[in-house]
Design a protein around this nucleic acid. Structure first.
Lengths: 211, 211
DNA sequence: TAGATTGTTAATCGATTAACAATC
DNA sequence: TAGATTGTTAATCGATTAACAATC
């Protein structure tokens, strides 16, 4: 259980939660790895391994207790205790994330948003005032915010990320199309739509060829 | 060159393009895999393999011709000839994607958007009229649109995806937190923020423990 | 020519899947 | 008890990385 969980396993866990919630809403009490595997198109062995890595245990012949499994996985994912975050860059995508209601249930709490556009400073988006980026470092330090969400244009990504680190942040969720160079130990996770789009258009063109 | 490219390689290609464009803007003529590897924090051998899979060739002692390499990779990614798409679900995220200017450069052309909310039908977002979902199947067939972008709430994902397939679409870019069950041969790529968030919060909590 | 860099083949590493023992 | 399902160890598969030959 204390073994480092592989990233692919970690990435599959949220989908388990969604499916388990559906079953729970239907009043189900128990679930087997066969059920999960079929619904999520995975190998049953893989499901068992993932659940085991998340610290869940089931009972032979019965399966996993649904409520217990849900709690275990959600807790493992950290969805029960919120992580505070600052968001920098309130363009289309940044604003959309600010307005997204789902983060609360997933343990993410965006405290404030920053931008450089004078027209935006002082405006309120979904209950948060947009502040000038010059206040980022000081506020991050004072409020001990450890996670930064980076939704600035590509050119601004590197310097903005450096400010986040300067403010004491240790994790960055990067939506900008740029590769960040930051000190060892800083956790960077990229959300690059281009990557998925690349896979999609490549497969699409292969599929069109073979007709 | 005709060998199937692994998905991880494919996903790395867009980042090459961004870095190459930066170099091109600085007037550079040639680039080596060592340069690319250092900037993107990859292994030089991996870069060579990726480029080779994309059909690029370089010259020993010199490296790759920058302009030629850029064209080769962009073309391989399909960024030079546009793919038409319909977007369904014009909530925060859907609207943000509709307004995003970058897709054009990446070979994606969102022709129209659909929703079920009567208040939204008929309104214009970034030059596209929002239509009722009931028109999706017919229009997709008539216009031979093959790619659907799914930005509806989780519950609506499966039925909406089925409509896309009914309309003749063969690829779906799924942003909804749901696992889609569709006929064999339909290409589905998921963009699940939860997955990345799961990795991020788990690493963050590990990092906090070891202090 | 000498040496740097490409391009490919072989070795390693890690995740997935198969086999099977444990157990309710 | 018999049998279904968990949980784990071993085999497989694919991607990454190392080694090295080719070549400008």
């Amino acid at each position: 259980m204390n073994k480092r969980i592989p990233e692919p396993s970690l990435r599959r866990l949220p989908s388990y939660v969604y499916f388990l919630r559906q079953l729970a809403a239907q009043g189900r009490q128990a679930v087997s790895t066969a059920d999960l595997a079929q619904a999520l198109k995975l190998d049953p062995t893989q499901v068992r391994k993932d659940l085991s890595l998340a610290g869940a245990t089931g009972r032979p012949r019965v399966g996993y207790d649904l409520a217990e499994l849900l709690t275990t996985v959600e807790t493992f994912l950290g969805w029960h205790n919120a992580t505070d975050a600052f968001l920098v860059g309130t363009g289309q995508l940044g604003s959309a994330l600010l307005r997204y209601e789902g983060f609360g249930q997933r343990g993410l709490n965006i405290l404030a948003a920053f931008d450089t556009d004078p027209n935006k400073i002082g405006t309120i988006v979904h209950g948060r005032e947009i502040m000038h980026v010059s206040r980022l470092v000081g506020l991050a330090k004072r409020m001990r915010v450890l996670l930064g969400i980076l939704t600035v244009p590509g050119e601004a990504a590197q310097p903005t990320a450096e400010k986040m680190v300067e403010g004491g942040m240790i994790a960055i969720w990067n939506f900008a199309p740029a590769t960040l160079s930051l000190p060892e130990g800083i956790i960077v996770e990229n959300e690059h739509l281009d990557e998925t789009l690349a896979v999609l258009s490549h497969r699409l063109s292969l599929s069109l060829e073979s007709r």
